[in-house]
Amino acid sequence: VLQKEQLIQPVQDQVFNEIRKIGSLKKYDYILDSSEAAMLYNAERHDLSDQVLKAIGRTAKIDSRNRGNDKKPTKEELREQEKEERYLSVEEAETVEKKEEAKEQLVNDREKARLEKLRVRDSIKAARAAKFQKRRDSIIEARERRKDSILKAREAKKKANQKTPPGGE
């Protein structure tokens, strides 16, 4: 037991020193050990386990559920990994979140503007199509009336010719 304590003590000292460094860099008021404290909820960005392990030279936790060993990481995964690796204070993390929300809002606003532009373009297109169809229908109706009047005139002439015998009265 004494030998075990002697082997563990330097690692515990390293961990404790790194936690103190991270706490001062990120301006934390408290850092709790979740195995000893009754922790009901904490945001993932406040989990310092990976950072402490990296700082003392140990391997970080590898989340094999997210990606396989032979798979190349995506840009999004690299960005997330970069965010996790940086030491951010609570204020800095909130600032980063606000910036991300602002970017997302900007993207949403641009998408809304694009959709509004498309809606206006489509309504103009529909109005032109309706105007064209109305004009086309009126032209077709005028042709039909002209055709009907010509046919009626021919029929009237035929009837008139049938009533009068050919060659005289």
Rank of each mutant, 00 (worst) to 15 (best):
E84F: 03
N17V: 05
E144T: 14
S49T: 15
L7K: 08
I62Q: 13
R65N: 09
T95G: 05
N17G: 03
R58A: 15
G57D: 09
P73M: 08
L2E: 10
L118C: 01
L32V: 15
R154M: 11
E116G: 01
A55I: 08
K75M: 07
I124S: 04
S123H: 01
T95M: 04
D50T: 06
L53R: 02
D148K: 13
Q6C: 03
I31A: 02
Q162E: 15
A113D: 14
S49M: 04
K61R: 07
R128L: 13
Q81G: 02
R58Q: 14
D122I: 02
E76G: 00
I62A: 12
Q12R: 15
E169V: 14
E92Y: 02
E101F: 07
K131W: 00
D70Y: 09
R143A: 10
Y28G: 00
K21V: 09
E101G: 03
E155H: 04
R135P: 03
R110P: 06
A93M: 04
K159I: 14
R121A: 13
S138E: 14
N108C: 09
K4Q: 11
G167I: 05
N108L: 15
Y41N: 02
V52W: 00
A142K: 13
K61H: 11
V107L: 07
R135T: 14
A93S: 10
Q12K: 15
E169N: 10
D50V: 02
D13I: 08
R67D: 09
E85M: 07
K4V: 10
K159E: 09
G167M: 05
H46R: 05
A126Y: 04
Q162G: 03
L48G: 00
T74G: 11
R110F: 12
P10Q: 06
E80R: 09
S149T: 09
L25Q: 13
L40Q: 08
K117Q: 09
R146E: 13
Q3T: 11
E18F: 06
Q9E: 13
P166S: 10
L53W: 04
F132P: 02
R79A: 05
A156T: 10
